[in-house]
Computed example of a mutant assay.
Amino acid sequence: MRRRAARLARVAGVLPLVPLLGGCAAIPAGEQERSPTAVAAAPLPQPSNADQPAAVVLDGPAVQGGVVLGTAPAGTRALTLNGVAVRVAGDGRFLLGFDRDAGASAALVATLADGRTVTRTLTVASRGWRIERLDSLPRISQPSAEFARRRPAELAQIAAARRIDGDADGWRQRFVWPATGHISGLFGAQRIYRGEPGSYHSGVDVAVPTGTPVVAPADGVVILAADTPFTLEGNLLMIDHGYGLNSAFLHLSRIDVAVGQRVRQGQSIGAVGATGRATGPHLHWGMKWNEARIDPLLVAGEMSR
């Protein structure tokens, strides 16, 4: 018995006791507890940047009466502004114009070669206009018979000229003033006669003496040079700057260029006068982008003299 007891004691002194605590084994001495290795979840697939078409980029804000240059995404095969086609140059550059009465927003949509579309909603900044209310005066009297006879043919010539949209690159340039002097009439100004609105002023008037040279504000092609004075515009000259943008110069005393002639920015094109319906010598400079009337003051910037 003593031999058996001694043998059991020797076994107990050599082998550590392993308690059974819910099936968990004790941590051997000298080892630190380690957390189980975490298994990282597989990341969700992210769309490749290559799958996302580039955005339509504008160089500035959209403003009533203003223009802005932009760049279309690579591969654009069509661009529209409120559903109207916009010309895009080979390098992706384009021009937008916003009428004096343009709405608060506009939809610009680029259609890519693969059929996808890129849409950008533009916020068009509104402007305040000089409104003069003449409650004691009626609107101008009915036009004369001579005016009524001549005017349709004049308007047809103007409309035909504006339909010309050539390859001139003047639309890319920073425009200069065709004449410098006192600004006597602002774009967008309007008179209200006894509550009835008259037509708003469609250009900028620069009051300078008769004979003052008029220069091309940007490169372009002459699309109209009146042979005889028009009833309202007098000696009228129009220049296409390309991609829907054109300039009109009214009341000239003379015209120095011919239809189809290419002109360069700063080149002399005529002289200031008071022909047509004018109360004194001045240059009326009007601009249009497609059907939108544009404020030349926003295109040429502040006049420096």
Rank of each mutant, 00 (worst) to 15 (best):
A85V: 07
T71Y: 01
P209C: 08
G301W: 04
G273A: 03
D169H: 03
E154T: 07
F187S: 08
R2N: 03
E33A: 14
G260I: 09
W285R: 03
L96Q: 05
G276M: 00
V124I: 15
E196D: 11
A179H: 02
L134M: 12
D114G: 13
V86N: 01
G270C: 01
A85Y: 01
W285D: 01
G115N: 06
P47L: 03
E33V: 12
G13Q: 09
A12W: 07
T210I: 12
A74D: 08
A89P: 00
A153Q: 14
D59I: 08
G66H: 08
M287E: 11
V88L: 05
S144W: 11
P138R: 06
G90W: 07
V57F: 13
V109F: 09
A189W: 02
G195N: 05
S48H: 06
E233Y: 13
G211N: 09
V57W: 13
H251N: 12
D295Y: 02
G90A: 15
Q265M: 06
A189C: 00
L15I: 05
G128V: 10
T210G: 14
A278T: 11
G75H: 06
A225G: 14
T275R: 02
A216P: 00
R3W: 01
V259A: 15
A104P: 11
E233G: 06
I183Y: 02
S247K: 02
L44T: 14
P45E: 15
P229W: 07
S268Y: 00
F187L: 01
A40V: 14
G276A: 05
L17I: 03
G103P: 07
W289N: 04
A25S: 05
A216C: 09
I183G: 10
G70N: 06
Q64Y: 00
M303K: 13
H201Y: 07
